[in-house]
Simulated scan of single mutants.
Amino acid sequence: MPTIAIIYFSGNGHTHLMAQAVAKGASQCEGTTIELIRIIGEEIVNGRWKNDQVMTKLNHADAIVFGSPTYMGGVAAQFKAFIDAGSEIWFKHGWKDKIAGGFTHSSSPSGDKQGTLLYLVTNAAQHGMIWVNVGDLQSFLFGKDDGVNRLGGFLGVMGQSPLDMSGKEAVIDEGDRLTSERYGLRIAEVTKRFIN
């Protein structure tokens, strides 16, 4: 039975909604256990992230999915602090051969989200993890209007919502939600095949 940990930071709620969609998709794979883990600012003290309970969950997971909004062309500082805390695990190859994946969100149609995904896959590669890509072409290529992979992100899932400074509750595009769900299911299925 695969265990998938989805660890992410979300500043305004959009990345959180994507994480929930990834979890929902993964839950469609029978027997999959999902840990949804949100990085919070209180876990960062003097610039260092620390949460031993979270690291224990990640160490026991078969797959880890990383999520961060794209801020200024890269991962959020809070997420970077978590990544830096993983250096002890890296040194021992503690996540070697775990399945990995990632997703990001920004308000700009491009927003340099590719830079964030490249950072996530580079981190996974340094850990010796096995990265799962999106696996879906843009659905509009086949005359569908469901918005699957509408932004053409293949390395990981990209989401985009217009910038809204009004304080309204976050929402994500329906296509981005569906792409995230499909990605979660793909990761769960790959993990299940890999651990059996």
Rank of each mutant, 00 (worst) to 15 (best):
L117T: 05
A85I: 06
K80W: 08
L178E: 14
S139W: 09
P109T: 14
T104W: 11
W131Y: 07
P69H: 05
V134T: 11
G135P: 01
L155H: 03
V171Q: 13
G101K: 03
A63K: 06
S87Y: 14
H127W: 12
Q78D: 12
G94M: 06
G111N: 12
S107D: 15
V134H: 05
V134Q: 07
M158K: 11
V132M: 00
V157D: 00
G153K: 07
T179W: 02
M72S: 10
H93Q: 14
L151N: 05
L141A: 13
G73E: 10
G143T: 07
W95P: 01
A125T: 15
D97Q: 11
S87P: 00
G175L: 05
S139T: 14
L118C: 11
T70F: 02
F142R: 09
K96S: 08
I89D: 02
G153T: 09
A125Q: 10
I89Y: 01
Q78P: 03
Q126H: 15
W131H: 09
K144S: 11
K98E: 03
Q126Y: 13
I64F: 06
G128Y: 06
V65L: 08
K92E: 12
N133M: 08
I130A: 10
N149E: 11
R182K: 12
I83Q: 08
G152L: 08
R182E: 01
F82P: 02
W95I: 01
S106C: 13
P109R: 12
E181D: 10
D145S: 15
G167V: 02
G102H: 06
E88H: 07
I64T: 06
R150V: 10
L163I: 09
S110I: 12
G94P: 01
T179R: 02
G101P: 01
D146H: 07
V121E: 10
K144A: 09
N149Q: 12
G175W: 04
M165G: 00
Q138W: 00
I99S: 04
A125R: 11
P162C: 06
R177Q: 15
A76G: 06
D146C: 12
S106K: 02
Y183F: 15
Q78G: 06
K80D: 12
S161C: 03
Y183L: 06
L118H: 15
L120I: 07
D145R: 10
P69L: 04
